[in-house]
Computed example of a mutant assay.
Amino acid sequence: MNIDRTTLSFRKKVVLISFGLAIGCVSLWFTSSMARQLREKENYEVRLWALAIERLGQFNADDPLSAYIMDSRNNIPFIRTTDNFSEVLSSNLIPDRILYHPDLLSRKLEQLARENPPLEITAWNGSRFYIFYGNSRLQKTLTVFPFVQLAVIVIFIGFGFLTFRSSQEDEQNKVWIGLAKETAHQLGTPISSLLGWIEYLKTQHIDPSVVEEMNKDLTRLMKVADRFSKIGSETVLSPANVNEVVGSSVMYFRTRIPRNVTLSYNGLAIAPVQAMINGALFEWVVENLLKNSLDALQGQGEIDVRISDDLEWVYIDVKDTGKGIPKSNFKRIFEPGFTTKTRGWGLGLSLSRRIIEEYHKGRIYVVDSEPGRGTTIRIALKRLYA
């Protein structure tokens, strides 16, 4: 049985993440167990200390045994009071501002009682007193530490997931890049053959305009192959006249659109504007937008391609009178795989966004759209001054 490298890589990542989770869970259990054992130990020691005080009688700090017991409990905060809680007999790790303020003292006693049930001690002479005690700093730290660990585990899982997804995307990108380059390579043979056939047709008694249109289609096919070969390679940008680059795509489509579709363009009638672009890839984006507009028109309507600019940006708007897009899909149409067509993979606008935003450092977005009234999509490029 053959298992491909992608499957093996996937399994390794799953095993690594599972191993990390197992370590985190064991660490969490161990820390929680330590906190529980420390709590039980401290409770036992406090009860032992209270029992010793009860056996010794009235607490005397000058007594060596009492002093030793006190020193051994110096990490646990406590308050020893009379049976009516009106007088503090002794305390440890409790600030004076609390001990001498009735309201603060009352709230502190309530807090300590919530942490541990107070101990009632009956002295040898029949008098009673209470010991209110809390948890040591170490115990509080160990109590909180599992939550810190849990947060670290969640962060670890998050980073692991992001790394895993990123690696999956990298692998998928490598597959697509390889497929694109192989497609460009495979197109080379029929393109070379078609070039020879066009030269042959030029020598025959055929309408030259027909041969010329065939030659334009072949030139377009060569551009498509060139675009596929550039995927995954370094994208070289150069100064270009945006009016002419966009106009080239518009002129090509004008002779190939249905009769009931009007395609207008203002770029050749206004002052030229420049931007840093890759001609082959940028034409691909313009063609994608024009094809989408033609699909939306369904054989009848208008497409208006318009160039405008300001001091910083050059704008190319492609507007159609087609079926439109709901506002909820304005961003989704640029996601890979999203399509409203019965055919197609939904990659056109996704690739267009990548070409414009990642390669050209520009923007592409829906300016306006409404179902039944058409759509306007805008490309924005940084303007270049000569």
Rank of each mutant, 00 (worst) to 15 (best):
N2L: 14
S9R: 15
S9P: 12
L21Y: 11
L38W: 00
E40C: 05
N43F: 03
R55W: 10
N60Q: 13
P64G: 11
L65D: 10
N75F: 02
T82M: 12
N92E: 02
I94W: 01
L109R: 04
L112I: 08
E115A: 15
P118Q: 10
E120A: 10
A123D: 13
R128T: 05
F129T: 02
F132D: 02
G134L: 04
N135P: 08
Q139H: 15
V144G: 04
V148G: 13
V154K: 07
I155E: 09
I157Y: 10
G158P: 03
S166I: 10
S167E: 15
G178L: 15
K181F: 05
E182H: 15
A184L: 08
Q186N: 11
W197M: 15
E199R: 15
Y200P: 04
D207T: 07
M214D: 01
D217L: 15
R220H: 14
M222N: 09
V224F: 13
A225I: 06
D226C: 02
G232C: 08
G232Y: 01
P239L: 11
P239C: 07
S248H: 09
N260K: 14
L263Q: 04
A280F: 05
V285P: 00
K291R: 13
S293N: 08
L294V: 07
D310L: 07
W313S: 12
G322Y: 05
I325T: 06
F334A: 01
G346V: 09
G346S: 09
R354Q: 06
Y359S: 00
H360M: 12
E370P: 05
P371I: 06
R378D: 01
L381V: 06
Y385W: 14
